[in-house]
Design a protein around this nucleic acid. Structure first.
Lengths: 215, 215
DNA sequence: GCGAAATATTTCCAGTGTAAATATTGGGCA
DNA sequence: TGCCCAATATTTACACTGGAAATATTTCGC
């Protein structure tokens, strides 16, 4: 139903106090993603609200709905961006497969440390819509990258599928667990108790060196 | 400042429609913790709000403040409860140290699967106050349990502190990473791709068997 | 038994996500 | 070229949240 005709004119809705922005942003989707990433990195996922993003971009708080649906959609697209960067960061060239595996482990944790909030978001299945095609594809690509690196380390003897899967899973779980524990502050005590100034990276190297994923 | 004196009587504040509960609950703290755990397990941490808990217990939504301060305080106390149970679940008796370690790994993931939301909360440092004494103590006790199990596996040769810490950290990271990946659904694809009906526990056993944390 | 401290309620406020109605604009098609 | 429709953005409204502050009730130490 229509509103009754205004008496004189709809009143310019006192928008554009100082500058006159166009009604349509034009690049809202990417602008929102950029703003979302900024807020995420600086203030954490809890501060990443639709309204905060909209404020930063300078649009109404419901504008992002057209591009992302809801907050979960926005977070999912942002996570997809994260996974694409993650995959790129993991793609370490190298001759020796075993050496490449170690480099990948270091890169895995390095990414988590460089972008902690983004990394944590990427593994917050409860806030993501993993059926979103862009996210699903990005996750799958990363998973394949990780898997390929482990299978490139040829086993001494032919292995059953379960044992092959176990190797890949073990490598993934090891670095993932390290990253999660580190980000959650659970390794602080361990690091502090070591003599000298032991960096998390030093501990990680020792962990990788001490672990043999094979038979 | 006082309100003006009521005309006749303060009107029974139409509380207690059917039954007349006492003003003071009496066991509010434990009742709130129980309700919080129920909500957490059934609906996840996002549904675990002060108001939802208060509704379930049947008190005003600010009543828990006296016992927990704020929501973070409630979540922290709940996590402490979780850690105490976790520690008990991990304490597996056994003769052979190596066998005990494996049992501990299985128990670690079994707990995570049995109480996924509680387990996830326990590792959500962003929502917990790790300086809360009860939580800090519970965490520390668990950490020591884990640490002791790994150091009980005597090394063939004397090891430097860094290498000792690396062994303990590696074991922890491996099972923790497995649990996190599993709860986040990241192992679904791997499990589905294996021939036959492979349970997550079967994969975990294969992972533990395929991994040697030593030199 | 009485006053202070503990416990619980009421009221209020600033945020939040989302739905629905409305407004504006650009692009496809006559 | 002009016009209508779909895409995009705003406004408004609502139900929820955590928390502060004032108030009410009860328990407990003395």
């Amino acid at each position: 139903m229509r509103r009754p005709a205004p008496r004189v004119k709809p009143a310019p809705t006192l928008r554009a106090k100082t500058e006159a922005r166009p009604y349509h942003h034009g690049e809202l989707k990417s602008a929102v993603l950029d703003a979302a990433e900024t807020i995420l990195e600086m203030e954490g996922v809890d501060a990443l609200t639709l309204r905060a993003v909209a404020r930063m971009v300078g649009v109404s708080h419901t504008a992002p709905k057209n591009h992302f649906g809801d907050l979960q959609g926005l977070l999912s697209e942002l996570a997809a961006v994260g996974y694409r960067r993650f995959g790129a960061a993991l793609d370490s060239k190298g001759a020796d497969p075993r050496q490449r595996m170690k480099a990948m482990g270091l890169a895995y944790v390095a990414f988590a440390r460089a972008h902690p909030n983004l990394f944590l978001l990427m593994y917050r299945g409860d806030r993501l819509d993993v059926n979103l095609p862009s996210l699903r594809d990005a996750i799958e690509a990363t998973r394949q990258s990780l898997r390929n690196a482990t299978t490139s380390v040829a086993p001494d003897v032919p292995l059953a599928p379960l044992q092959l899967a176990a190797r890949a899973t073990a490598s993934w779980a090891l670095v993932h667990g390290f990253a999660m524990l580190l980000l959650d502050g659970r390794l602080r005590h361990t690091l502090a108790s070591l003599p000298g100034e032991v960096d998390a990276n030093t501990l990680l190297e020792a962990v990788l060196d001490a672990t043999r994923v094979n038979d």
